[in-house]
């Protein structure tokens, strides 16, 4: 495997293959809605400061897998996790009973399929996550809001309308606002659940470019239906089918030479 070697900024290295170190991994992760198994024994590595794409046909469990990382399933009744999700470098199990899901969510950000800004001003949308983390200093909040908006490539468009309702923004702007909202909290891992599926091609391109730039700062896990998007933004890709992880590898390798027949058929558009 020819992987870009981690940049020399003091990251941990993971073995002789030159992989960047792991930010997280699932070990034997299964998930149940009631009696129904939605995920079976998934082992997925998530490399630090890289984007990993989860692909596969509808209903294969990729969103379910994503939502295990920040324990989003806990909001709904009748769910059960089995196995582990380790988060590094402190090596905690996100699914352990003693792990507070709120603690996990304070460290792991998420961007949803449809933009879901809060009924607040542009500024307050981003400040909200900071306030949840106990930040009170007005200057610091203002600085971090501005930085997040710069990072999300939204600052120039909204700098004169920070006090306007977030609902006054366009769909693409709202989605970048939601990314800014997550970035402001400096998450260690950022989950994207089909972040561009509700957007037009232009807005999609700007979000993709944004994800590309963010990789110097954060680790990204991206669910996408758009295979081209996976090849454009992600270094790694995981193919899921019927709740199982069938194949994982560097995106290029997985797309050019899939080792499984199912993967090949899916990538060739023979089912979906």
């Amino acid at each position: 495997m020819t992987e870009p070697v981690a940049t020399s900024n003091g990251q941990r290295m993971n073995g002789a293959a030159g992989h960047p170190s792991l930010k997280a991994e699932t070990r034997g992760l299964s998930f149940f809605y009631g009696e129904k198994a939605a995920l079976r024994e998934v082992n997925l590595p998530v490399h630090e400061r890289r984007a990993t794409a989860l692909i596969g046909p509808s209903g294969c469990g990729k969103s379910t897998l994503l939502r295990c990382f920040n324990r989003m399933h806990d909001l709904y009744p009748d769910h059960r996790y089995a196995g582990e999700i380790r988060l590094y470098p402190d090596d905690i199990n996100l699914l352990a009973p003693e792990t507070d899901p709120i603690e996990a969510r304070l460290r792991i950000g998420m961007v949803f399929q449809k933009p879901n800004p809060f009924p607040k001003s542009v500024f307050e949308n981003i400040a909200y996550g900071l306030r949840l983390r106990g930040l009170r200093d007005k200057t610091e909040i203002a600085e971090r809001v501005e930085r997040a908006l710069h990072d999300a490539a939204l600052w120039d468009e909204v700098k004169d309308r920070l006090e306007d309702s977030a609902y006054a923004l366009s769909g693409g702007q709202q989605q970048r606002l939601c990314i800014a909202r997550a970035l402001a909290t400096e998450p260690e891992l950022l989950l994207f659940d089909e972040p561009t599926s509700a957007l037009d091609p232009l807005a999609t391109a700007s979000i993709e470019a944004l994800i590309g730039r963010l990789k110097s700062q954060v680790t990204a896990l991206i669910v996408t239906h758009n295979l081209q998007q996976a090849t454009r933004v992600a270094e790694f890709a995981a193919f899921m089918y019927l709740g199982e992880l069938l194949e994982f590898g560097p995106t290029e390798a997985l797309f050019n030479a899939p080792s499984q027949k199912r993967t090949e058929d899916y990538l060739a558009g023979r089912f979906g």
């Binding site: 920040n70 989003m72 709120i102 969510r105 950000g109 998420m110 449809k114 879901n116 800004p117 939601c178």
Partner: peptide, 12 residues
């Protein structure tokens, strides 16, 4: 989706 957005940010 609005509730999920808040919880995902770490809200109680």
């Amino acid at each position: 989706s609005l509730r999920e957005g808040a919880y995902a940010l770490g809200a109680t």
